[in-house]
Design a protein around this nucleic acid. Structure first.
Lengths: 261, 261
DNA sequence: AATTGCCAATGGCCTGACCTTTAAACGATA
DNA sequence: TATCGTTTAAAGGTCAGGCCATTGGCAATT
């Protein structure tokens, strides 16, 4: 016989479980009120504090709603699909999504980072990643970079053929190019960093940069820059790769800020 | 003038929300312990019962784990919990919604990055962030950095008093120190990068580094380094800050790799 | 009929106490 | 020296009782 792990469940869990069973059994149909906290405490032979903890647990998962001065209302068992609690939680905890309550939270991952800050960071990180890549790049990695380069060239071609009125230019090739260089550095941390930096340039503020990309010779110049970087990687010349990447980003920075003022 | 609806949040929600923010800000990284209930209650100016209710709410949502007689452990932000999985995913990889960028560049973020790679990247990024911070730091930011420094000193003290057999050393103070400097740089991108780098040093491989921290004079030396960095920031000396941060990380790298071979 | 005032019921929160569990620290012992 | 109980401080678990704030129905008032 397998050993039965005896676990002294914390009281609030036991109470919450029991209440949940009673609710599901129909003892307290949706819409009705649970007995008052004081009664529950006495009936269960526990303190009111424990009952309150149990009720809060049930409230957090959206099974009941506590109304001050009124009572504890049993809620409808909402869509018990894969993400039942999601909608429930969102409804029951407006503060979870309410911007008013996320003030100063610095939800650092959603925060929109200004283009200049992003580019400044990339300007600092990517040349080093490129230098590392020149030293550590494998033939396969080089091939994947070359492929990204080609794709970027195609992207640029497409945009020029269509003129300014085409669909928004896809920067997938460009992103892929930078991303794969970072991966080729052999240091996954650099790849992580650059991936995050690239991932944050989807904010509205980047529309300007993207517009610039099409209304200037930026794409041509970028392509030349990319070619230089690629050559340096092929030559496994760390210094050249670092310099080429730095020049490239300097150019982007300059272009952006020349127009931005 | 429209009437402003007064919304008296129940106390446990305010507390839970605040704790959640602190956790997300990095004050209490995953794996560390929250302050004892009694301390929290006193610090927040509320009763212990309310703190407990908040902790239960956080526990139900899978953000913390309460261990009897031990403390409240901060958990990894797992999407397996009751938390809204979608928004969680989107929060961590904003570009996940862009189909053009989702191809092949799968560098999953759960991947464990080797300590050396992590430290190398930090070695490259943090000195620059420190230099920027020296130029842009505000009095409030400086105060928050000083507070993190103090906390780190306390952490070290605690570990020394207990000797080698003490409980695992909390690096919360150290993390905070580095993170707040990044935030003080005025460039949110640097803060983002460093936050992610720090967030990855919880893998098993870092146990060695953490052990070293206690079995050598690393904590003393680190503390001196931190002091130098702090002084440079106070003096608003960018070059000194950059150098101090670089020296600090060089020391950590050296120590780790002298022992690691 | 509408408004106002009252009040019992109910949840919200606090204080302070005591118990149980955990794990570090300590000794005793082999 | 290493191992194994014992001790003990710290942390969570629970309880009792009290006071406050809100709600909602009912009665008194206009």
């Amino acid at each position: 016989m397998p050993i039965q792990a005896i676990r002294t469940q914390r009281l609030y869990r036991q109470i919450a479980d029991q209440l949940r069973q009673l609710i599901e059994r129909g003892e307290f149909p949706p819409g009705t009120l649970l007995p008052p906290e004081r009664e529950l405490a006495q009936a269960l032979g526990v303190s009111r504090a424990s009952v309150r903890e149990a009720l809060i647990a049930l409230e957090v998962v959206g099974q009941v709603e506590v109304r001050v001065g009124h009572g504890v209302v049993v809620l409808e068992p909402k869509s018990s699909s894969v993400l039942p609690v999601m909608s429930q939680a969102a409804r029951q905890q407006p503060w979870a999504l309410d911007p008013e309550f996320s003030d100063e939270t610095a939800l650092d991952f959603e925060e929109e980072i200004p283009p200049y800050a992003l580019l400044q960071a990339r300007r600092h990180v990517e040349p080093e990643a490129a230098a590392l890549a020149a030293e550590h790049v494998t033939p396969e990695a080089l091939e994947s970079i070359r492929e990204a380069f080609t794709r970027n060239v195609e992207d640029n071609h497409r945009v020029q053929k269509r003129g300014g009125g085409g669909r928004p230019h896809s920067h997938a090739g460009d992103r892929l190019f930078h991303m794969r260089i970072a991966e080729a550095s052999g240091n996954p941390a650099y790849a992580l960093l650059i991936k995050h930096l690239l991932g944050h340039q989807y904010g509205v503020m980047f529309r300007r940069l993207q517009d610039l990309y099409m209304t200037t010779d930026m794409s041509d110049r970028s392509q030349e820059d990319h070619q230089r970087i690629l050559d340096a990687l092929i030559a496994k010349d760390a210094n050249a790769a670092r310099a080429a990447m730095a020049d490239h980003l300097d150019y982007v920075l300059e272009t952006f800020f020349a127009e931005a003022e």
